[in-house]
Amino acid sequence: MVSIALTRHLFQFFPQLADREVAVEAATVAEAVRALDDLAPGIAFYICDERGRLRPHVNIFVGKEAVRDRMRLSDPVAPGDTLSILQALSGG
């Protein structure tokens, strides 16, 4: 299983993911996002646009490394990895 750590900003839209461990079966980041969308329908469209590209001010880390393929999220993940999904802090 791959663990997913989400920015708390997403919990306001998807409260069902708050205060719980989130783990999915996935071999790539894209598969992990799809599996996350099964747990919380609609969340993939918050993280990615309709072409499946990571939104410009959102980032995903596999462990401590930012994903390299922001277009298709093809970066591999392995059991035991942790994905961190977060957004840039900006605005006022």
Binding site: H9, L10, F13, F45, Y46, I47, D49, R55, H57, V58, Q87, A88, S90, G91
Partner: peptide, 8 residues
């Protein structure tokens, strides 16, 4: 228009 999370 959520800046980070796209239009909904």
């Amino acid at each position: 228009g959520f800046g980070h999370w796209g239009a909904k």
